[in-house]
């Protein structure tokens, strides 16, 4: 089933488009990597997909049929989110518990299941022992891991991660890729991840969207496996 569908999407920040007539279908239930050099519009592609940016032209659709209530639950970890707000006066557990706020609404109390979920997610990223530490005291890689735990507590149908392994050591990165693979296999969720580490992550991915610049042709979008994409007018 198609999760996200882009048709003839054009988008730029100034006068020139950085994405020019891109059409792309992303399958649900897969672990998908987006790769490419700096400035290849990887983050832009994610933000267009999530509706954080509006295309100049073309359409972007998320398949609401994948959710029972027609509204997809999406977990998002932006690029280096943790280093952006270093002085935030929150303990690790406060931040990770906030992932449950969407389901709890304004007043509902945390249930035992939700407390267990928070613990499980923190253990999965190996940060349970740091739960009472202030987030400003953690290293970059540790902050990144608790932001991932926060997204996991949302129990999202789609998890969108922008360079999530930045600052992590090699063992943590491998553990993280295995966790995401398990998340897709065991729970049927979709994980979309921007990454520069295709050599490491490649073995765990179902599909790779590779954005590359060619001297004369401009930007191209090469896709392996079940995603399909092309630049140029849609027939």
């Amino acid at each position: 089933m198609i999760l996200s569908s882009m048709r003839n999407v054009v988008f730029g920040y100034d006068e020139e488009p950085v994405i020019d007539r891109l059409s792309l279908d992303i399958e649900a239930g897969q672990f998908i990597g987006i790769t490419g050099p700096n400035g290849a519009a990887k983050t832009t592609l994610l933000k267009l997909m999530l509706g954080l940016l509006r295309p100049w032209d073309g359409t972007v659709e998320l398949n609401g049929e994948l959710a029972a209530d027609g509204k997809l639950n999406i977990g998002y970890v932006p690029q280096q989110i943790a280093s952006f707000n270093t002085g935030f006066p929150s303990s690790v557990i406060e931040l990770v518990r906030s992932g449950c706020y969407g389901r709890l609404g304004l007043f509902r109390r945390f249930t035992r299941e939700q407390d267990e979920l928070v613990e499980r997610c923190l253990r999965q990223v190996e940060m349970w022992d740091y739960r009472n530490r202030r987030i400003g005291e953690l290293s970059g890689g540790q902050k990144q891991r608790i932001c991932i735990a926060r997204a996991l507590t949302q129990q999202p149908q789609v998890l969108v991660l922008d360079e999530p392994t930045t600052g992590m050591d090699a063992a943590s990165r491998t553990g993280f890729y295995k966790l995401m693979r398990h998340y897709v296999n065991a729970h049927g969720r979709t994980v979309i991840m921007v990454t520069h580490g295709l050599e490491e992550a490649g073995a765990y991915l179902d599909s790779v969207i590779s954005l590359e610049r060619k001297e004369k042709e401009g930007w191209t979008c090469l896709v392996t496996n079940s995603c399909s994409a092309h630049f140029g007018p849609e027939d």
Binding site: G75, Y76, P78, I81, F84, S98, L106, Q154
Partner: peptide, 15 residues
């Protein structure tokens, strides 16, 4: 919602 907004506006918006 104020906690989520204050921590990060983009993730708050998506959630």
């Amino acid at each position: 919602p104020l906690y989520s907004l204050t921590f990060d506006e983009e993730t708050a918006s998506i959630s």
